[in-house]
Design a protein around this nucleic acid. Structure first.
Lengths: 339, 339
DNA sequence: CTGAAAGCGCTTACAG
DNA sequence: CTGAAAGCGCTTACAG
């Protein structure tokens, strides 16, 4: 930054004008090949790089986008960010990361910062608190500045922007159906995240499947660990043979309670839920999980945003993309026929 | 960005010069209070925000820093990033995140991007591959540009910059000592990361403790799961009663192998290692772990960098800070006297 | 083919 | 107290 050579200095050394140097470096057809070569040679020698800030000021673009992550210690979001970063690099976009920590206030602050004009576009997954309040007005501030916005993962509310998420409802539905196809009748659900929209979606998937299949519903749902644990015990006592869970705490807790009750997985209980893919295989027993393809979500989000940033002319209608999830079967869902 | 009002437009509306508007907004003593009030009122009305790119160009600062993360799906690094982001916000710094994916080539590309001059400073944890190669020359490129650099977590090599990490050696040493104090004699170590410097450090801690305490060493170390699993079995067959592990895979795998062998934790085997703090309590059994205070590392890294960025005059000597870790005791290390 | 000029949106020494 | 001018480092229409 400090020692960097500028166009002005190059032009002095070459005894040509700044304009000529600039054009030569940009391969302008206005400039003779000879001059282009001379200029480029010296530029290379001095390791010249155009000052990005100056370029940005001219072009009124920053080549930078913002991403708001609700919680980066969440494996899912960490993976989404990895996808975002990877795809952004390909497109030569720099990613500024903001973490809302699931806080509405923090999110508002971030939006406020962003609207100062640092970035060319924004990727958002609204915070937990925002979802509870159902208060999405602050996002509109960005739209007023005509800043392209793409929502990812938490997308079930009204905002006229591109959205990319997964089929939460269908995921759980499929899991319940699979258990049923394998002969289970008493299938329960365990959830620690009914305060989150994804939790609600997944629960709906469960209810729908149970209704369709004409099964009895067994629900253990609580945001706090101890009450949830108690409810899981009740499910197991009621003879539930299969459990789907909406989240990692629910999944691990179910495995744990089963262990405490002396129930063996998968012999006495089948279990599938949401567990970090890097952890799942090493658990005892290893736990089957639903893969949401977080990296793809990140990549897709960048692609949508990129299109918006570079689209000229009048705007296309917002798009909503919903990815299918995939069950990854480990020990906890070994059905006889799958072996 | 697009619809934003500029100084020029404000000055037109107010019938004063651009300079006056600028000074008024910056509370310059040169400007009369009356004018200041007029200007600010209109600015507020139009929601004026100075264009950050223009300000950056003038000040030749960007208010932006880069952080290179080796692997964001790693819980530890995710938490470090959270600490970085949080502290950066306090200091009004924007954080551009780059993920090296433990690749040397990728890391070089990133360094190259960064040296273009986007940022005021850089936070680095070198990739796994970089550590294996012991090839740190590319970092010097940044130093040549006089860009402040701070290394975090992976800090055991020679580079004249500030460093912040944890006492990896001491952490494992302490764990072994604690087990010994509680009457264990056969204490083993399990490691899946001897290719990483932190893995080596931790192993050294083990060896030192074992030597000091005059114990026999029991080592299971392999980068691949199956061979490691086999080696863990051997340790258990040899009658090891306590195991420390250097990493999450090693820790989970040990728990799992013990389970498969019919050994109960903590009755038959004590275990402490490195496990995500959000997962550890919900495992069966819950697993004790070493807390490395990742958020503090992130915060500290930003603080060091901030000092460097804002220091004037000649540079102070590089500082190296090493944080103490902390054992968090869950089921897997229930010693009688601790109950 | 080359260069002077204007401009992106700001800040700040300097003149009045 | 206010404003014209220069400048941060670039790009680009325009003139020659």
């Amino acid at each position: 930054m400090r020692n960097k050579i500028t166009l002005k200095e190059l032009s002095k050394l070459l005894n040509v004008s700044i304009s000529t140097v600039s054009k030569a470096l940009n391969d302008s057809p206005e400039i003779s090949q000879k001059t282009i070569d001379r200029v480029k040679e010296l530029a290379l020698l001095h390791n010249y790089r155009p000052n990005p800030t100056a370029v940005n000021l001219k072009s009124s673009k920053s080549g930078t986008i913002a991403v708001i992550v609700p919680n980066i210690s969440n494996f899912f979001f960490a993976k989404v960010l990895a996808g975002i970063e990877q795809e952004a690099q390909k497109k030569n976009l720099q990613v500024i990361t903001y973490i809302s920590n699931e806080s509405y206030e923090r999110e508002k602050q971030i939006i406020d910062m962003i609207s100062y004009g640092f970035v060319d576009g924004v990727l958002i997954a609204p915070s937990e608190e925002t979802q509870k309040k159902k208060e999405y007005e602050h996002f509109k501030e960005l739209l007023e500045y005509e800043l392209p916005v793409v929502l990812y993962d938490r997308i079930n509310f009204d905002l006229p922007v591109d959205k990319i998420g997964v089929d939460d409802k269908g995921s759980i539905e499929d899991a319940v159906r699979l258990m049923h196809e394998n002969g289970l009748e008493k299938i329960g659900i365990v959830s620690a995240i009914q305060n989150l929209d994804v939790g609600v979606q997944r629960m709906e998937g469960y209810k729908e499947a149970v209704k369709d299949l004409n099964l009895k519903g067994f629900i253990a749902s609580h945001a706090d660990v101890e009450p949830l644990r108690e409810k899981i015990r009740e499910l197991l006592d009621a003879g539930v043979k299969g459990i789907v869970s909406t989240d990692i705490i629910g999944t691990l807790l179910t495995s744990r309670v089963a262990f405490e009750q002396g129930l063996k997985i998968p012999e006495d209980l089948k279990l599938i839920g949401y567990v970090n893919e890097d952890v799942a295989p090493y658990l005892s027993p290893s736990l089957s999980y639903i893969d949401q393809h977080p990296k793809k979500i990140g990549e897709s989000a960048i692609n949508f945003l990129y299109e918006r940033i570079n689209s000229t002319g009048k705007k296309a209608e917002p798009v909503k993309q919903v990815l299918k999830t995939e069950m990854v079967h480990l020990d906890s869902t070994r059905f006889s026929y799958l072996d």
